[in-house]
């Protein structure tokens, strides 16, 4: 999604002179267009992420909308206190953009993975996290982010196009993507693409309701999702994020609060590094049972006679 992201920013920053872009010394072969287009509003703050966030807070206080860009883990964990104290407490328009969320950086290893970002950020005051699943959803996330003018985090992942068979949906808390009645699947991030691969050609696909939640915190259960859960009584949550502090826990709370009857609730999430072994993003998805085959098996298990 990085190319689409920089294209969007180039366009909007050309129109809006109060937008500043700060990179933590990353963006080779991806952000050169922004450096050219934005001139002195494009700042390389060096390999110093904590300072980058503080600088962004100071600039936002003076009226600028400031994007802070880095590889996701570097801009989440390293500067969590700066994000909380300097940005969120003051409700400033600082937009933190982390590339390669989840296991996106694959074989680069655990230092480059970001599977606890939503847990870290989504509870901070005034913060909204955006986790687009498809390239087509990025524009809506960015538009909402700039319109909102408040602290934000955007997790960029490997961009894939929205499958043609999906229902078109506007940006929302839980976009319904297809319709069924036997199982409600709620997913977040580009890992959702593995669901579609799992469903393609699956005889159960017409029995499945699919929802994508592309921003966090997830605090309100949309009527369509509540209705789907009411009808199916079966819930499958899929996210490339640890179980703690992510979509699954948020949805579980909402279901209990609404007293919805759920027969079965299955949560597929980033398992971390259970065997201490490392590999590609697909490898880690497989270990976490987030790959196409595992998801297919999990879906089928809902339709097996007990």
């Amino acid at each position: 999604m990085r190319k689409e992201f920089s294209t969007y920013i180039e366009k909007i920053a050309t129109q809006q002179k109060d937008i500043v872009f700060i990179t933590g010394d990353l963006g080779y072969n991806a952000l050169e267009n922004l450096a050219d287009a934005m001139g002195n509003r494009f700042i390389n703050a060096g390999v110093a992420e904590q300072n980058m966030i503080g600088v962004a807070a100071g600039m936002a206080y003076k009226g600028y909308k400031v994007i802070c860009y880095s590889i996701a883990p570097f801009v989440v964990y390293r500067c969590l206190e700066q994000v909380r104290n300097d940005v969120c407490f003051h409700n400033l328009p600082v937009y933190i953009v982390g590339n390669g969320g989840g296991y996106g950086y694959g074989i680069m290893g655990s230092s480059h993975h970001c599977i606890e970002d939503i847990a870290c950020f989504s509870g901070l005051p005034n913060m909204k996290c955006y986790v687009p699943a498809f390239v087509e959803d990025l524009d809506a996330c960015l538009t909402d982010m700039f319109d909102r003018k408040k602290p934000a985090y955007l997790r960029l992942g490997l961009g894939k196009n929205r499958p043609e068979f999906l229902l078109p949906t506007p940006f929302g808390a839980a976009s319904k993507l297809s319709a069924g009645s036997g199982l409600t699947i709620v997913a977040q991030s580009p890992v959702a693409n593995n669901i579609f691969a799992a469903l393609a050609g699956d005889s159960n696909q017409h029995c499945v309701d699919l929802f994508i939640v592309d921003h966090m915190p997830f605090t309100t259960l949309p009527d369509t999702l509540a209705q789907s859960i009411q009808n199916s009584g079966n819930v499958l949550v899929i996210e490339e994020h640890i179980a703690t502090g992510g979509l699954g826990q948020a949805l579980s709370t909402l279901i209990h609060t609404a007293s919805l009857p759920v027969h079965r609730f299955v949560h597929l999430f980033a398992a971390g590094y259970p065997d201490g072994l490392y590999g590609s993003q697909s490898f880690h998805q497989q270990v976490s049972r987030l790959d196409e085959n595992s998801i297919s098996q999990t879906i089928n298990s809902f339709f097996q006679p007990l």
Binding site: V55, A56, M59, E81
Partner: peptide, 25 residues
């Protein structure tokens, strides 16, 4: 009091950001 402080090491980055913004504007 434009910024809440109390955890050390936050003021100089923020003040640098303000100075950068002042230069830019």
């Amino acid at each position: 009091i434009p910024f809440a402080t109390g955890s050390l090491g936050h003021g100089l980055p923020i003040a640098s950001g303000i100075a950068t913004a002042n230069k830019l504007s």
